Deep mutational scan, measured.
Amino acid sequence: PEDLERKVRELQKNGVSPEQIEKILRRDGVDEREVQELVKKVS
């Protein structure tokens, strides 16, 4: 979803590592495939 992507970009802009971003997304209940997609987009 659009807002998730925005969140991921925000986190990355704040210097959060892709690994941390993955953890955060998983903790928020984002589905694994979605997590991978989002992280791939920003890394």
Rank of each mutant, 00 (worst) to 15 (best):
Val8His: 01
Arg26Phe: 05
Ser17Lys: 06
Lys41Gly: 09
Arg27Ser: 11
Lys13Met: 11
Gln20Val: 10
Arg26Lys: 09
Ser43Met: 15
Arg27Met: 13
Arg33Gln: 11
Leu4Pro: 03
Asn14Leu: 13
Pro1Gln: 13
Gln12Val: 15
Asp3Arg: 05
Val8Ala: 04
Glu22Met: 15
Val39Gly: 01
Leu4Tyr: 06
Asp3Thr: 08
Glu32Asp: 07
Leu11Phe: 04
Pro18Val: 15
Lys23Ser: 12
Glu22Trp: 12
Val35Gly: 02
Arg6Met: 12
Ser17Asp: 06
Lys23Gly: 08
Gly29Ser: 02
Lys40Asn: 13
Asn14Gly: 07
Gln20His: 06
Glu10Arg: 10
Asp31Trp: 03
Gly15Ser: 02
Glu19Trp: 09
Gln20Trp: 08
Val8Arg: 01
Gly29Lys: 02
Asp31Cys: 11
Glu2Asn: 11
Lys7Thr: 05
Val30Gln: 03
Gln12Arg: 14
Pro1Cys: 11
Pro1Phe: 14
Pro18Ala: 12
Glu5Ile: 12
Lys41Glu: 06
Asp31Phe: 03
Val35Met: 05
Glu34Pro: 01
Gln36Thr: 07
Ile21Ser: 00
Val42Trp: 11
Asp3Gln: 08
Ile21Val: 03
Leu38Gly: 02
Lys13Gln: 10
Leu11Cys: 04
Ser43Gln: 13
Val16Arg: 06
Leu4Ser: 03
Arg33Ile: 08
Val30Trp: 14
Leu25Thr: 00
Ser17Thr: 12
Val16Met: 14
Val35Ser: 03
Gln12Leu: 15
Glu10Pro: 00
Gln12Tyr: 15
Ser17Tyr: 03
Arg33Leu: 10
Glu22Thr: 10
Ile21Lys: 00
Pro18His: 07
Ile21Pro: 00
Gln20Phe: 05
Arg6Trp: 11
Pro18Thr: 13
Val35Phe: 07
Val39Pro: 01
Val16Lys: 10
Ser17Gln: 06
Glu19Cys: 07
Leu38Glu: 02
Val42Gly: 06
Asp3Trp: 12
Asp3Val: 05
Leu4Glu: 01
Leu38Tyr: 07
Lys7Leu: 13
Glu37Leu: 09
Ser43Asp: 07
Val16Ser: 06
Pro18Phe: 14
Ser43Asn: 12
Val30Glu: 03
Glu37Val: 07
Gly29Phe: 02
Val42Tyr: 12
Arg6Cys: 11
Asn14Met: 14
Glu10Lys: 07
Leu4Ala: 04
Lys41Asn: 08
Val30Pro: 01
Lys13Cys: 12
Val16Gly: 01
Leu25Met: 03
Asp31Asn: 09
Lys7Gly: 01
Lys41Met: 13
